[in-house]
């Protein structure tokens, strides 16, 4: 049974989620991937304004395809998250509560998740056409020159996610595989 969650993702909501939970997320999420993360963290370090307030925000690592006429957004599945590992701890320290991507995270990110009560969600990699149906509105709010990598504000409805790393540091990429292999040996 999936858990319905709405943004803003407060620390209380984030801490209630457990690795392996299925979640349907609704509300506002911000898109950012490699180049946008670099700029956001540089802006933070320089004390400049940010494209969005990180406090209790959820960031989706995605660079969508262009919307066809009549679509809110083109295909919009997650990109591989480890490339954001250099930037995520700084954002989490500033209050960012949720990350949506796919693939492994480094120890510094896991530590930041535990320390600040954040959560790392997995969306299905390669399911861009399916996931785009959950996006109601999309608007570029910063770094337009980056094209697909620009920062967008999305309104999503029932975006299907899995809690991969929870606020205690439990990691589905480790436990899921172990559980499968253990069941296979029985």
């Amino acid at each position: 049974m999936a858990i319905r969650i709405e943004t803003p993702l407060t620390e209380e909501k984030a801490r209630a989620l457990k690795s392996g939970d299925s979640v349907l997320l609704s509300g506002t999420v911000y898109t950012a991937r490699d180049a946008a993360h670099k700029r956001i963290v540089e802006a933070m370090e320089a004390g400049k304004p940010l494209p969005f307030d990180p406090e209790n925000a959820v960031v989706y690592y995605v660079g969508p395809t262009p919307a066809k006429p009549g679509q809110a957004i083109g295909s919009a599945g997650p990109t591989t998250s480890y490339r954001m590992d250099a930037y995520s701890p700084a954002l989490i320290a500033r209050g960012q509560r949720g990350m949506i991507g796919k693939g492994k995270r480094g120890p510094a990110v896991v530590e930041a998740i535990k320390q600040h009560g954040a959560v790392y969600f997995g969306a299905i990699g390669g399911a861009g056409a399916l996931l785009s149906k959950c996006v109601r509105t999309a608007e570029v709010i910063a770094y337009d020159d980056l094209g697909a990598e620009a920062v967008r504000r999305l309104t999503v409805e029932d975006l299907p996610l899995t809690v991969v790393i929870d606020s205690e540091g439990n990691n589905l990429y480790e436990t899921g595989r172990e559980a499968y292999l253990a069941a296979r040996q029985k």
């Binding site: 395809t65 066809k68 295909s75 599945g77 861009g128 056409a129 399916l130 149906k133 697909a148």
Partner: peptide, 13 residues
Amino acid sequence: IADERSVPICQDT
């Protein structure tokens, strides 16, 4: 869905 609507299967085209 991608096949029926002729939209990209994945956003990484």
